[in-house]
């Protein structure tokens, strides 16, 4: 197995609200390996974005949030180090690409400047060196005429170009881990295809781990090697792409895959639907969190929370109905 670059162990993220603490993430553990593309999927409110932002400690810890668990990166627990050290890791060792490039880039600086900033802070390059490198980065992410684009502002670029700039900013210091949070959700399919190709290409060339956070299963199927499925702040299933798409074990994973219309699917058939909606965090059901929407739920599911158990070489699932033998058969 490849070298682990990030270990998330028992992560809990709780938000302080007027009505007390809300557990948005409840005991999430996973590893990210060097050079891999890991997909984290789930619907809105499942905690996939909160997980990624917790890794970088982006929430206001004084007022908003309470973390527990450990996030180990390069031998250190990220929750133990001072904020100053955390800021050195952000952008240099772990970078992030957000969904909305227009609001994530600074509107009053040229795009070139924003890459230069990162290089000057983390790599201590001279202005001239940093500018040279920034132009190279723009070229690397496939922006035509990079010298001219260097002096343009974010609003002058199209959505796809802006996302490329964000990727250039994120990759400028050759991070070990890139977290891409819904990087193509706001883009059209043709542009989405270009951006995903770029991310896959960068992943191979720079040998960095990529955590792709998305609600789009098809994007994950096309690009990732490993997949984590989340529901209501917990991991419900984890496995290789083949595990998840060929033999999904959790009823929620199965439901999600079947709910997406296929390009070669039978059009006369009704789409599979998961009834009900994702409950609010303040109304988390006891027992298995998916039980109220699960067609196979039994009395036990409603009372007892299932553990995440290993059912194959690479597959883990959190469901009472799946035994180890079943996992092997399926």
């Amino acid at each position: 197995m490849q070298e682990k670059i990030l270990e998330v162990d028992g992560l809990c993220t709780q938000f302080r609200t007027e009505r007390g603490l809300l557990k948005a993430i409840d005991g999430v553990s996973f590893d990210v390996y060097r050079g891999e593309m890991l997909g984290i999927v789930g619907e809105s409110g499942c905690g996939k974005s909160v997980t990624s932002q917790s890794i970088l400690r982006l929430y206001d810890e004084k007022r908003l949030v309470k973390y527990s668990g450990e996030i180990r990166f390069e031998g250190k627990n990220l929750f133990d180090i001072p904020m100053k050290q955390m800021r050195q890791i952000r952008g240099e060792k772990i970078s992030m690409v957000f969904q909305d490039a227009l609001s994530s880039l600074n509107p009053v600086f040229t795009v070139g400047n924003q890459i230069v900033e990162s290089l000057r802070i983390h790599r201590k390059l001279s202005k001239k060196e940093a500018e040279e490198k920034a132009v190279k980065m723009l070229e690397l992410v496939g922006i035509p005429d990079p010298r001219r684009r260097f002096y343009q502002y974010p609003f002058e670029l199209s959505g796809g170009m802006r996302q490329r700039v964000m990727i250039a900013v994120a990759l400028a210091c050759s991070p070990r881990l890139l977290i891409a949070d819904e990087p193509t959700t706001a883009l059209d399919v043709t542009i989405q295809a270009q951006i995903m190709d770029l991310i896959v290409d960068m992943n191979r060339r720079m040998d960095m781990g990529v955590m792709l956070i998305t609600h789009d299963l098809a994007v994950v199927a096309e690009t990732c090697s490993r997949v984590i499925v989340m529901y209501l702040g917990q991991i419900v299933e984890e496995g290789s792409v083949d595990d998840i798409f060929d033999r999904p074990a959790h009823p929620y994973t199965k439901g999600l895959i079947e709910a997406v219309p296929k390009m070669d699917g039978d059009r006369s058939r009704r789409l599979h639907q998961i009834d009900g909606t994702v409950p609010l965090l303040s109304q988390i059901p006891s027992g298995c969190r998916f039980a109220p929407r699960c067609p196979y739920a039994s009395e036990r599911c409603r009372k007892e929370m299932p553990e995440l158990k290993t059912i194959g070489a690479t597959q883990k699932v959190r469901c009472h109905c799946v035994t180890e033998e079943q996992g092997k058969e399926a």
Binding site: P144, S158, I191, A218, A221, E222
Partner: peptide, 25 residues
Amino acid sequence: KALLSAVPNPNPHQKKERIVLKGDL
């Protein structure tokens, strides 16, 4: 053709030819 080829496929075993359009709208 280009639009259809860009649609991601939720089946990891079917890799298809993608027609990438040059430039933006």
